[in-house]
Amino acid sequence: MSQHAWLAMFYAAYFGFVGLYSPFLGPYLKTLGHSLDVIALSLGMMQLMRIVGPFAWGWLSDHTANRVRWIRAGAFGGFLCSVLVFLNQQSAMALVLLILLLNLNISGLVPMSDTHCMEICRGDNGWYGKIRLFGSLGFVAAVLLFGWIANVWGYASYPFLACLSLLIAFGAAMQFSPAPSEPLSTALTGSASGGLNRTSVGTGFRQLLIPQPMPTLWLASFFMILAHGVFYAYFSLYLLEHHYTELTVGWLWAFGVLCEVAFFALQTRFFDWLSLSTWLCIGYAACAVRFAVTALFPDWLWMMVFAQGLHALTFAAHHTATIAWLRVHLPGRLVVRGQAMYATIAYGLGGSAGTVVGRSLWGWGGPSTAFGAASLAGLIALFYGLKLKRQEAVLQ
């Protein structure tokens, strides 16, 4: 098998695990008799580790210039922890600790594997999208397949399938060939950043945080994923409040991911049309529209279908444009740490903030208020996205 095929298998297996973990961990723990407090704390470990984990893995990857080693280590550590979590009976405290360790191990897999995939694809967004879409397919397959299994046979197979997913991801990672890394001297003194000079601001955190347009990108990413934090936490409950059936809810989720898959498959031609920063702005604008529609027209099924279709822009286009933008604008030695910083600021801090803000506004002004705030967050992200384009024009 080619490196592209092994990467596709890795993405499918890892996001298959996510498709099992995010929707079904809570119900599974409930079947074991755990309290709602324990379930809530366990589910919170993923967001918590997204704040601290990706950058730690990214630092190891960049510092040793051997990210394949750390992808394998994270995948194996995740598999080992999943065995301890799912195939043993333990106290509530031990369960939460083991789930924390599980998420710590897998928290860096996406930024490291995305960077490795971009290197294997030599920066070709089209090839990257075709490989990355297997992650989306794995997620959809896991959600739909296990939803059917649980409905017919219950949760008895859940531990086995969760562990098997991470074992397959580890097996695929063992077949990765190291991609050529940028020499240390060029990483520190030169730049692959399309002309943005960073030598005057040091390395590491300073290069990632201080020079423009980096702070602008981080602010845009924070508000973009804050909006999606509301969506991921409350969309299903929102639809159920408006009397959709569980089957309809499931298919709306699946439709959004299938639109994401379609964009990944076709993005080669799309990214040839416009610049990366323009695609970022398109994603931010689509986010504002998507959640405004969700807030205003929850009882109109066709409008919910339209809103979910925008997932192709708010996730797939935005994700690829961000990953490619960081690869272009950061020195090679800092690329993984840049991806990790993105995961930390956007998905860790932004996603957590979205969950908290959504819950507060749901109680204060009702469900539509929460999604109205998500739309506003998309508009704030668009403001910073347009600022990013102006800063790039000045610096080039």
Results as ranks from 00 to 15, higher is better:
Y347P: 08
G58A: 14
S2I: 01
S113D: 13
P23I: 02
R122A: 15
C259S: 15
M341Q: 10
Q175K: 15
S181H: 11
S107D: 15
T322Q: 05
S2Q: 05
T186M: 15
G154I: 04
L97I: 10
R198E: 11
R69M: 13
Y28L: 14
A65D: 06
V83W: 09
T278C: 12
G365K: 03
T314R: 04
C121I: 02
Q308G: 11
A377N: 08
G351R: 06
Y232Q: 06
F139L: 15
L217R: 03
V18G: 08
L60M: 09
A172V: 03
M112L: 12
H243G: 01
N103A: 08
S368C: 02
S2F: 02
I39G: 01
L247S: 03
I168A: 10
L219P: 01
M112A: 13
A227S: 15
H228Q: 12
W300A: 09
G366F: 04
T203E: 05
Y14H: 06
I380M: 00
Y347E: 09
G74S: 12
R333G: 14
I149N: 05
F383K: 06
A285S: 11
W273C: 06
R327W: 01
T355W: 07
L310F: 04
L219F: 15
W59D: 12
A343R: 00
T203R: 03
L258I: 04
Y155Q: 13
V394L: 06
M118T: 07
A187L: 07
Y158I: 02
A373W: 00
L98I: 09
G309M: 07
P23D: 10
P178N: 15
L102R: 01
H34L: 11
L240I: 11
I51C: 15
Y21R: 00
S157R: 13
A312F: 02
R198A: 06
L145K: 13
G58Y: 11
K389C: 10
G229I: 04
F15A: 05
A316Q: 01
F55Q: 14
T314P: 01
V230Y: 01
